[in-house]
């Protein structure tokens, strides 16, 4: 699925010799020297991929899971629907035996930057409290605030956007 803004991935490989862009999955380029431009991309098959990258592919970490909880405007009160998601979060955290959980508060852009930073922090602290009450070790939870600066949906300033009033609980 593309990013929220609809774009899909691409990489650019650059050195003193020049630049090469790869925007198709399963393509590779080769670079022999810092001063020689990267070669044009060519397709690479699964077998070659495994041969070269087998070791690194085998130990790829299980990707973190992120849960998003939503709040009523200007408050640190969870919406009823989000309240109902809590048991699943607790179960996942306990099943993974995670020692690395981040709880990050976010807001929409209504109000001052500073105020939104504070509200977002309150939201994060509130969620941490709930998780601790349900049996998660407080030492593995880190709370943070990203205020209005890490929106789920990008908006101009002073736009009420329920999807941005959130806490993201990431279980790694």
């Amino acid at each position: 699925m593309p990013d929220p803004d609809g774009k899909t991935g691409q990489i650019e490989i650059q050195n003193r010799g020049g630049i090469q862009i790869i925007d198709k999955p399963g393509y590779a380029t080769e670079v022999i020297d810092e001063a020689v431009p990267p070669k044009p991309p060519r397709p690479i098959d699964e077998k070659e991929l495994r041969r070269i990258f087998g070791g690194a592919l085998t130990v790829q970490p299980v990707p973190p899971v992120t849960y998003i909880l939503y709040f009523t405007s200007g408050t640190s009160v969870l919406t009823a629907e989000s309240e109902g998601r809590l048991p699943e979060i607790i179960t996942t955290a306990l099943q993974r035996k995670s020692s690395d959980i981040s709880v990050v508060g976010h807001s929409d852009t209504v109000g001052t930057k500073q105020k939104n930073y504070e509200i977002s922090f309150d939201r994060a602290r509130m969620v941490k409290e709930i998780l601790v009450l349900k049996g998660i070790d407080p030492l593995v939870i880190k709370t943070e605030s990203h205020g209005e600066d890490n929106p789920f949906i990008k908006t101009p300033d002073e736009v009420a956007e329920p999807r941005n009033r959130r806490v993201e609980v990431t279980i790694r």
Partner: peptide, 23 residues
Amino acid sequence: MHQRGVRQVISLSIFIFFMNTLA
């Protein structure tokens, strides 16, 4: 909507980039 981390991973494409150096 809820498990964004997981969905992002599934959505991403695989690119490969390999090279030779004189290390």
